[in-house]
Each structure stands twice: as C-alpha cells, then as structure tokens.
Amino acid sequence: MMDLALPVKNDRLQAIASRVDNAGNGATFTLYTEERPANAQQAPSGEELVALPVPVPFADSIENGVLTGKPMPETMATGGGEAGWGRLRDATGATVMDLEVGEDGSGAPATMPATQVYAGMLVEGVSLVLVEP
C-alpha cells in the first residue's frame, strides 16, 4: 500500500491535466456503451455515443487531491444507448485515461444527469472529477 503526500497527489493530477491540454484545443471525452476495456491501451468496446470537446485548460481546479474539470459544452450524440464508460484523449488523439460514467451523485469520476443517450439528442452536464486516493 502506498500513501502519497498531498503535494504529490496534486502534482500527479496536474500531470494529467497537462497531458489533456497537450497540443491545445482538440481533446475529447468520448462516451461508450457496455463495460470499459481492461486497460486504456485496448481498443474501445461498445458503441460510441458522443465525443465531447474538452475545454482548454481542462482543469477548473486542483486542490486537496481533487481535480475538477471545466464543464464540457453540449454536444449532439451520434449513437444511442446507456453510457457506461468514457475515454479521455488529448488533442493528438492519444488516450489519457478511461473512466467509469454514472449519473449525478453516483460517485463515478465522470457524471451526467442521465446516462441514457439517444442519437441526435444534445448531451450536456457531463463533468469529470478525479480524486487521488
């Protein structure tokens, strides 16, 4: 077991934010159906529902071991189904991380008002909160 000091936790979160901001505008958070792959190097599983643009800078705040992402703009869904996970990519398309998706209040790192998505609907209210344990 490892327990990092708070400044180190914040540094790790800053490194994630810097990676997302890599190359400027163009980072995305893409929602998918089904379960996420075993690791972030595997091809996405499930149907792609929507690719949300990530604001630059990505982080709204980093404090006390918590990174809160800036709100993502509403985006029209291209697919339909239940959002189960999402992939965060930088502007070059490189995967930064995969995250569980849940409804607001679920405790998932990526949340949205409702996880059911329909093709053609505007997806809004998706937020990312990353917590260093």
Rank of each mutant, 00 (worst) to 15 (best):
P53G: 09
D104S: 11
D21A: 06
P71W: 11
V131Y: 07
E34H: 08
E34T: 15
G125L: 05
T115F: 01
D90A: 07
V126A: 09
V101R: 10
G105N: 04
N22R: 15
A27K: 03
K70I: 00
D21C: 09
V20F: 11
E103A: 14
M76N: 08
S61M: 07
G46D: 06
S18V: 00
E63D: 14
K70E: 12
P57K: 12
L13A: 07
M2C: 01
W85H: 11
V54K: 01
A51D: 06
A51C: 10
T28S: 10
A91V: 05
G86T: 02
V131E: 13
L31H: 10
V54E: 00
V117F: 09
L122Y: 09
L128M: 14
P71Y: 09
F29T: 00
Q14Y: 03
L128T: 04
A119Y: 01
A94V: 02
V129Y: 00
L31D: 06
V54W: 01
T78Q: 13
L88M: 14
E48G: 10
G120Y: 04
M72G: 02
L49T: 05
A91K: 10
S106K: 10
P71C: 10
S61R: 15
E63I: 08
V117L: 12
A51M: 10
F29D: 00
S61Q: 14
